[in-house]
Design a protein around this nucleic acid. Structure first.
Lengths: 196, 196, 196, 196
DNA sequence: AATGAATGAGCTTTCATTCAT
DNA sequence: CATGAATGAAAGCTCATTCAT
């Protein structure tokens, strides 16, 4: 815990600077300064700007995969699984806003388009979600007249849109607001937007 | 009208190159070469890389605003209005795939986040959609136990997710597929994903 | 001849700086300054440090090939052909000392060892010389009890050693000294070092 | 003798890496890794990259001086002395190919080397050879109508060219080939390339 | 003696932009 | 309008060297 957390320092600095300025406008010098270390040390640990960025972003992907696999295996019913996914996003927004901000603004679209690695990570993410949706259709919980990956897009699109808005508006998120959003998304997704 | 369409040429070239490589990786030299004009002429017409990009993207925003305002004013019922919005996105995907690809990958998140201009355009866009949603709630068509802007996010998030996927997969879109998607989104949005 | 000799200027500057400092210690900034042009223009014309260097060195190789091919085809007797080769080296030393200096100190050994291109250029050079030697053996002028490529090495080694010494010692070369060297090399090569 | 041969390890590693990559492209990290020691230890023993290189090269110079001085003093006749020199080069090529490879590619021509320490070493080397040549002229064995240092260049150039070729081609050298080369060089040097 | 994290000056290269023609 | 040679600030990255342990 003592001396050798320089790499952690650098990751934190990267998180902050990438979030503030975006990947393209981030200077390695900024990261080094923010971390309070020398220029070269960033390269000593991470080798390149891209590698530093990927290291940061991978912690996000791994957590995401972990949660989705957990839900896939769990014995909970489908609505609970979907709620768990929404809550994971909201919780990450609360605890690591910079990380999710980077995901939304730098990863979720651009990188996917222009890098093969990005694309494959996304596909794995979608695929895990789709498995849950399929399970729901198989159990007769979710409607089967819409293709499972259509349902998946709709669900994830809605969740991601919410997170984007939170990020864009830098909104504070307390427990009651979290519940409001979770309920709103899950309600509309399951029962529809139509008044009853 | 005949002789001087160099600016159109440049816009088309920009559309193509920005789409293929992304804003950051696009070189003005690429654009000029693709347009078959010289370096300097791009500057003569557009002044800067950013300005060229914005000019391109603005045609999208304007069309989008136009459709939304049209729908806002129209006498159609709410479902029809929502369908029109979905169809506008799908139609643009068919007719100007490069444009919508740029919107998805370069505008909808990143630029909004890191430029003030982007943010205000987005707010206007959301606001126009929200007006339609509010109208739906006012008329008792859409549920009122969920905040109007929550409903808006869910709807737009779902639509955007679809378009993203189309773009990513470079999917062909014929009339029947268009109908399938439109129906899927509108059905799930209005009546929910739950099996009946 | 008027305005657009910038590339010539840069080549001359490169010749001078590479010669003075060696490839590794040459800074592109030095070349640009020496040429009186901007930093970027060097890249505009040559693309990279290596490319600039190769362009410079290639003029040497091409001249060398040219002379050797000329001699190969010529109707002169073998001693005259060998003398022509020696004189070409000595003349180049007089007229373009920087060029031959670069050849000796940067190309003739190091680059050959560490680049495939360098190696193949050398092989072509050797091969052209060997053809002349073989012709001499075929005509009964040169001894045949020593392998042709051995004879070639000995001849070229002697010539190159002379040039190296001139370069390293920055010696002045007048006509009489040129003759002295040419005679010495050709005499010893043909008739041997042994006193008669 | 047993425990502390780290400096030997480093020299061997340097020998190998300098040979493989050349001085400029050699990284101290490569040397340390190859030697299986740490970064800092190389500096502990040798102080700098240049110093390490010079230390390595000096073992070559010292052996070379030693042989030349031995031959200078010896009572053998001139041809035997010259043969001994040729054989020293060929033997070193057999026993320590990396060392001679470095000499050929990094020392014998490099202008950089000559500006710093190398020039005086080279002069001593030439001077020792020249003494033998002068002795040969004095005894009426070698022709006196060519300046002694010209004869020396021719002889050494021929030898060096051979070694270069061996190094370049990574040729195997057995006893019979050694004899062939030695005889070829000495024959041509003493009696000339002309057919009798 | 031995380590390797840490430094930072200095390098090559890129590319949006300018401007003389 | 049109060109493209020319600019140069600024970036990412390298690597010999230092030094606390």
């Amino acid at each position: 815990m003592a001396q050798n957390d320089k790499d952690k320092l650098i990751i934190d600095a990267g998180l902050s600077v990438f979030c503030k300025k975006g990947y393209a406008s981030t200077r390695m010098a900024d990261v080094a300064r923010e971390a309070g270390v020398s220029y070269g040390l960033v390269y000593h640990y991470f080798g390149s700007k891209r590698a530093l960025f990927d290291t940061i972003v991978d912690t996000w992907w791994n957590d995401l995969y972990h949660v989705l696999e957990e839900q896939k295996e769990s014995q909970d019913d489908i609505p609970k699984k979907l709620i768990a996914i929404i809550q994971f996003f909201l919780d990450t927004y609360s605890t690591r806003p910079n990380l999710i901000s980077i995901f939304i603004s730098e990863v979720s679209r651009s990188s996917v388009y222009h890098t093969t690695v990005g694309l494959s990570k996304f596909k794995k993410f979608f695929s895990l979600c789709e498995d849950i949706v399929k399970e729901g259709q198989g159990k007769g919980i979710l409607r089967s007249d819409v293709k499972p990956h259509y349902l998946t897009y709709i669900f994830l699109g809605a969740v991601e849109a919410f997170i984007s808005i939170l990020v864009l508006g830098k909104e504070k998120l307390d427990i009651s607001k979290k519940k409001l959003i979770t309920d709103g998304v899950i309600q509309v997704f399951l029962n529809g937007a139509k008044a009853k």
